[in-house]
Simulated scan of single mutants.
Amino acid sequence: MPLLSAVWRQTRPILSIYWMLVRITVPITIGTELLSRFGVIKAIAPGFAPVMNLVGLPGELGLAWLTAILVGLWGAVPLLFTLVPASALSTADVTVFSALILFAHGLPIEQSIIEKAGPKLLVTTLLRLFGGLLYALILHHLLAATGWLSEPVSPRWIPMAGTPDWPSFFLGLVKTLFWMLVILLALSFGLDLLRLSGLLRRIMAALSPLLRLTGIRGEAEHLTAIGLFLGISYGAGLLIREARSGAIPPRQVFLACAFMGFAHSVIEDSLLVMALGANGWGVLVGRVCFAVVATAALAALLARLSDDTFFTRLFEPLPTPQPEAAVQRAA
């Protein structure tokens, strides 16, 4: 049937991207869980204490920061008030710490996904780490100089730390993978419907002035907006398909990935840390403003780089997609 054939043509590229995400997510998730359970993360965390002191935080939070980097937000959040009592922290402290983990969390998975779109792994990882540190340092000095948010933190929610047993862990992983597929398919078909209805044009007209400040243009705007609101797994996941098709120029892909690294899943993640007592202006408004300025600076730098330098140092040329006929013959 023509309708089923059209649906399959739309679905097949998404299933290919989904399978790539599964191959990244499953081994890295299990590997980081093993590192956590065998105490490896805890053993190397003291080395991160000087970084915490640099941004005005207790050195003990180095373990929570490292856990966020390797495992993700939900691995770090329960550690915050376990390592340092809420009574010993100010709203400024929680806001600065939240900024750190919002910039750089779940890096093994998220950066592996970004790498598949073309930007080199080391470059974008360092951008997220140093971008987060720079923003946290600016925020710390601003809050210290003004005394703003110096009151004791008043969390609306204090999560309990706990390690699930292995069956619960794998069940949670399977549920995550299932919903990832559902959301990817919904986003793909939803984007097509939005395009056909003209709503996507209106939405992007509202967001375009913000994204254009960063140097991001055209189709890259749509996928960057998805990453901004829904997260890197979805924004960069869909970006892989467009980047490999040649629909988006490599420099635009790089800028989109850089921006998503600085600011992604801004609603869900910001609400999570605000429940811990972080200030919304610091973790949401300030973070997005920093992402715009930092990405605009990167755009200016990229404009000065030759193609040889760009593809040698920052971007891995993507494989050229096979023509449909060649794919069918290969099958």
Rank of each mutant, 00 (worst) to 15 (best):
V253N: 01
P249V: 09
A220K: 04
I216T: 01
I216V: 08
T95R: 14
H141D: 08
R329G: 00
A86S: 05
G198Y: 02
W166N: 14
G227I: 09
M260P: 00
V71R: 10
I17M: 14
Q328N: 07
L272P: 01
P13C: 11
V327K: 04
A299F: 01
I30N: 09
A186S: 01
L35A: 15
V293Q: 04
V293W: 07
L314I: 07
L63W: 09
V55L: 03
L34W: 11
E324C: 03
V40S: 14
S245W: 02
R9K: 13
G59N: 02
P85T: 05
L126P: 09
F178Q: 03
L177G: 11
C289T: 12
P319D: 04
L127T: 02
P321F: 03
F38G: 09
G277A: 02
T95M: 11
L298A: 10
C289S: 10
L302D: 12
L15M: 05
V123F: 12
F259S: 03
A330C: 02
R202A: 00
A325N: 14
V22G: 07
A256Q: 07
A64V: 09
L181T: 07
G172R: 12
I267L: 12
I44Q: 13
G31V: 13
F170G: 04
S245G: 10
V94N: 09
Q10H: 10
L100P: 01
S208C: 01
G59L: 03
W74P: 01
H141E: 12
P249D: 15
